[in-house]
Design a protein around this nucleic acid. Structure first.
Lengths: 231, 231
DNA sequence: GAATGTATCTCGTCC
DNA sequence: GGACGAGGTACATTC
């Protein structure tokens, strides 16, 4: 990894065109050839970048560019698309290289899969008499998160999200439409379960006869722990 | 901006829990207090990070940690949420600070707004006799990108996307449903226009009687330039 | 490789 | 400040 702090301007042409006026920035050159341009604020996202696979070539500035103060011209070209990033360097303030070696990568824990697992174990949260049929119930257009039955024995399709957005309601609607054509399942009612449900999503769901359930992740995890301790 | 290359392990607890095993990484400390942890590959996204506003405190490692090889313990706490990032530093390989100053920011060009403006100007691309009624036609559930009339004088709602995905078809469907309840507009037909239309989106649109139109951005811009030159 | 769904999404904009 | 939509979304997983 090479770290360069430089006064530079940057131009990108690809899926859009973008320009960064002359200023001091960090140029991050990774060993896979990728390049990131970071400013001193606005975390997370680089101001501009090129994803691998890509090739960096250092060009000599022409006379006009040299007159404008450009000392080095970096051309970063994407290998597959026609995307191009051009960095015009006016002054290098720092330049160092470092051997980092391979990174073992991030270990995550605590996402939608957890919510699904917990709700499957605590399906009675949806109401008395609810029974789990199975998780990831397969349909022609994809898996429904949870298929269950209610107290009356009717089928219930459950879509689980961390954040309940309008997209999730649309997704569940497509599943319900399809499943209600299957005489072995129909009628199938829908439950939209999420840690947080946006007002628009709730309105749309209610309008379509889909029940909304807000999940308390911490409480469910607590129940899970209690369950672990008891058995 | 402070650049630290160090052998370290990282733990994050917040919206999820995550752990990075011991390895060499770049720690990027920005002047707004934010921290980014980058590896030497996988461009763009940091392995882990903390967004501003946040506070960094350097702690002394306790005996057990010191025995495990930890020389410095960095605690980065989010000021608003309870998110916490803990960086256990075993060895510092590089440490430098740089004054970057303010960044003028990115200037963009070539997004959805452009496509909308161009198509409004060149509405005849949809077919002979098409006339623009207005851009951003307001409905109860949001603005339709373009409202037009076809050669027969019938209303046409146009949804424009850079990438035509299934979501866009759903969005247009909702608009059409609503607009067709308005006797002053009905019947309203739909056009789904995008630079690129995904097969699934095309299938769904066609199934719902929505016409798909692929837009050639470069050609439209060319027409626009020609238009500018002529008038 | 294409398609699909998630994200500690991030980031703008509009109300 | 919250909601909503777009992103050069990026990224993992599945088909």
């Amino acid at each position: 990894m090479r770290l360069v702090v430089a006064r530079c301007s940057v131009d990108y042409a690809g899926r859009l065109s973008a320009h960064l006026p002359l200023a001091n920035r960090l140029l991050l050159l990774k060993s896979d050839g990728s390049v990131l341009v970071h400013s001193d604020s606005l975390s997370y996202k680089p101001l501009n970048w090129m994803s691998p696979p890509c090739v960096l070539t250092v060009l000599e500035p022409d006379e006009a560019q040299r007159d404008a103060g450009v000392t080095e011209l970096w051309k970063v070209a994407q290998a597959k698309t026609a995307d191009l990033l051009v960095i015009s360097i006016h002054e290098v303030l720092h330049d160092s290289s470092h051997e980092l070696g391979h990174d073992p990568g991030l270990q995550k824990d605590g996402v939608e899969a957890d919510l699904q697992k917990l709700l499957a174990e605590q399906i009675e949260l949806l109401g008395e008499g609810y029974r789990l049929v199975r998780r990831e119930y397969m349909t022609a257009i994809g898996p429904v998160d949870i298929l269950a039955t209610d107290a009356a024995g009717g089928s219930v399709a459950v879509e689980i999200k961390r954040r309940g957005d309008i997209d999730g309601v649309e997704q569940l609607t497509r599943y319900l439409e399809l499943m209600n054509r299957d005489p072995r399942l129909a009628p199938v009612s829908g439950v939209f379960a999420a840690q947080e449900i946006k007002p628009q999503a709730r309105t749309l769901a209610t309008d379509r006869g889909i029940r909304c359930v807000v999940l308390d992740y911490d409480a469910m995890r607590g129940m899970d722990d209690a369950h672990q301790r008891l058995f």
